[in-house]
Computed example of a mutant assay.
Amino acid sequence: MSGPPLDTPGGSRAVVVDRPGHHRLVRREVPPPGPGEVLVRVAAAGICRSDREVYDGHRDAAYVRYPVTPGHEWAGTVVAVGEGVDAGLVGRGAVAEGFRACGTCERCRCGETSLCAGGYAETGFTEPGAFADHLTVPARLLHPLADDADLRAAALLEPAAVVAAAARMARPRAGERVAVVGAGTLGMLAVQLLAASSPADLAVVDPRAARGEQALAFGATAALDPAEAASANGRFDLVVETAGAPSTAASSCLLARRGGRVVLTGMFAPGATGIDPVHLSLSQLELRSVFGASSAAWTDAVRAFGTGLLDPGALITHEFPLEEFGAAVALVGGGDPGTGKVLLRP
């Protein structure tokens, strides 16, 4: 292991979810980086709806492995590197891709690393995550940040990478009429990124008026509630769905013009309203979906953050220490319109 001696009296703390609804804060030895790995001191970690699903036991069993330390949205500082890793990374602020893609299967070789056929493995779900003082990750997944990067804001680069993946599929063009369905974290980041493509209109659809007002500050030209949006069905060249609500996949397709493009970015649960295949065929819609983010999308998000196109920090509303994980996770998905992104700060 390369790096300065680690000043960690009492070891390293981590939140462990042993089974749905049961968690504990443990102290352990600092996990040393193995060959090809880096050890990161976590600066901030975001809690998202999928973390709440892990805690509640609602995540598909194929995509979680208990006991687990959650935390897939994070930023931190490299404090040590394992054998074969550039020692110059020590001291660098960084984020890292969550999917532990194999790099050799057909999907990986085609650049679709989030669809790796080598078996699902992801930081915070099947591998120890960032609700901890430290974590180790493969160095090949690391994305170093600028020296002056705000690591608190950078913790949101994982959802930003998902939005960047959607933008790659959406191919926004200047002068288009664009709608973003949902004004949560993904939706707000989508507004920021899509505003950079100079759309003629950029409407946000969300029932929460306060979220709509914030979207206007980020570059949206209109904030619509779902009823108002329904009167604009068939108007938009591009629709980016980010809510993952039961009805939003179907309603997003109705918003698009004939020949338009729809990208589904939200994660849907079983029982969501189906998309009308008659409408799809008669409207000749181009429909895409997003599962996570490829390495290329991560690169896009990190670059957009570095150039100031993305301002994730403005979405943070609550911060908690590791000891208050229970209170923090209870806020996520609780329905309070004043709750934006919730962070844990080890």
Rank of each mutant, 00 (worst) to 15 (best):
Y63R: 14
V17A: 03
L202Y: 08
R173W: 01
V290C: 09
C116P: 03
T104N: 04
I47V: 14
R173M: 09
T126S: 15
G244C: 06
F125R: 02
I47N: 02
G71L: 08
A330D: 14
C108W: 10
R235P: 00
A160T: 09
A62Y: 05
G274V: 01
D206M: 04
P312S: 08
R109E: 15
L6R: 11
A154L: 07
A210I: 13
V68K: 08
E29Y: 03
G84K: 09
G340Y: 11
G274N: 04
T221Y: 12
P5K: 14
P33I: 13
A314W: 07
V64S: 03
G76L: 07
A121V: 03
G34Q: 10
G333I: 01
A220Q: 08
L315C: 10
D86T: 01
V163Q: 10
W298G: 09
C116K: 10
P5Q: 14
P33N: 12
P138T: 04
E83I: 00
T136K: 00
P321W: 03
L216I: 00
T265D: 00
S251W: 10
V163L: 07
G82R: 03
L151V: 10
R208D: 15
G111M: 06
A215W: 04
A179C: 11
R152S: 09
A314N: 04
S283Q: 07
E319M: 03
R168Y: 02
G46H: 02
G91P: 06
V342N: 02
Y55I: 09
L189F: 05
E213S: 12
G333Q: 08
P246L: 06
L309H: 14
R208P: 00
G335T: 04
L322W: 04
R257A: 15
A62E: 11
G271S: 06
R52S: 12
H23T: 07
D336H: 04
E127M: 11
E213Q: 15
P32V: 06
R24S: 14
P226R: 07
G175R: 12
V16E: 14
D225A: 04
E286L: 13
E286H: 14
R257P: 02
R19T: 12
T123A: 11
L89W: 12
V17M: 06
T248I: 06
A190Y: 11
A227L: 14
S114W: 01
A179L: 08
A96D: 07
A256W: 12
R92C: 12
V17T: 03
F125D: 09
G34P: 05
D86Y: 06
L141F: 14
G34T: 02
D86Q: 03
L310E: 06
